[in-house]
């Protein structure tokens, strides 16, 4: 490797810092607005530093809106979706990766294409189905609807990951006396942990971000809303109440950003299916 000049190094840092600053500015702006007194938001020029942070805004939010409930619903939906998709996805991906199954190739192809289905199309028949099953208004409707996207996605990602694990590993486990399921649980899954983490992150992020399904299936009762439905409604109702809306957004963003920060290290590896190991 040739040594970079000081100028080159400076250029790289300057570009990196500029890029990050531009990318992260909206997030900073969200935090700043959430903490600003409402009157300040109508000042021109705007202030770029919270000289008088208003922490009470969060308490107000919890008091005036069923915000805690929305948060809880969102968590329930995201966790249920993640657990369901990961379970179904792990089993299917492992079977596709290890067993030469008749029809396996067709299924693999199907999984790939189903990632491209327009959700707004699916939402119509799903609505009809849930209506007849009495599931409209239940959090389960959102969990099931989201699985249409997340299960194929998880299966595809995990298969790529399982393909990088030598089959001798579970052969050894079988010889050592494990059942096939035991070999999967005791040997393959621990080895595939980074891939599982990356997939879980995807599932969680996609699910936490859902608006369409929640907006369509859960509108009837405010107590069933998820955060995204709540925030979108707040925006429609209180057009000028930006500090409240930003406070709500901040609280919706913090958990998922936390999950992201914790699992990001697996992201690049998971995407290239562990090929850079």
């Amino acid at each position: 490797m040739q040594k970079r000049s000081y100028l080159g190094t400076f250029g790289i840092y300057a570009t990196v810092i500029f890029t990050c600053a531009v990318l992260l500015f909206p997030i900073y702006w969200m935090i700043l607005t959430a903490l600003s007194p409402r009157t300040q938001l109508r000042e021109f020029p705007p202030r770029f530093w919270p000289d008088d942070p208003q922490w009470g805004v969060f308490a107000d939010l919890l008091a005036t809106q069923p915000f805690g409930l929305w948060m809880w619903n969102t968590i329930l939906v995201a966790v249920a979706t993640m657990v369901l998709s990961l379970t179904v996805g792990v089993l299917a991906a492992y079977a596709l990766s290890r067993h030469r199954l008749r029809g396996g190739q067709g299924l693999g192809l199907f999984i790939l294409t189903s990632k491209m289905l327009p959700a707004t199309l699916l939402v119509i028949p799903l609505f009809a189905i849930f209506k007849s099953l009495g599931l409209v208004g239940s959090l389960w409707s959102v969990v099931i609807a989201q699985s249409t996207l997340i299960v194929p996605f998880a299966t595809w990602m995990l298969k790529g990951y399982f393909d990088t694990i030598p089959p001798e590993l579970e052969h050894a486990a079988l010889v050592d006396g494990c059942s096939p399921l035991g070999a999967l649980v005791r040997v393959v899954l621990p080895v595939a942990a980074p891939g599982l983490a990356a997939t879980a992150l995807y599932a969680f992020v996609i699910s936490w971000s859902d608006f369409l399904y929640a907006r369509t299936f859960l509108t009837t009762s405010e107590s069933k809303w998820t955060l995204n439905v709540g925030i979108a409604t707040l925006k429609g109702e209180f057009v000028t109440d930006w500090n409240t809306i930003m406070a709500a957004s901040l609280m919706a963003a913090v958990p998922i950003i936390g999950v992201y920060l914790f699992l990001e290290r697996y992201l690049v590896g998971g995407l290239s299916s562990g090929s850079d190991k």
């Binding site: 990050c20 997030i27 969200m30 995204n228 925030i231 979108a232 930003m246």
Partner: peptide, 21 residues
């Protein structure tokens, strides 16, 4: 890298209301 990919994790609705503001 962590920062660059961060917006991906922000829910679409949240991203949208920030920009709307």
């Amino acid at each position: 890298r962590l920062f660059v990919a961060l917006p991906w994790a922000v829910p679409e609705v949240v991203a949208t209301v920030i920009w709307a503001w």
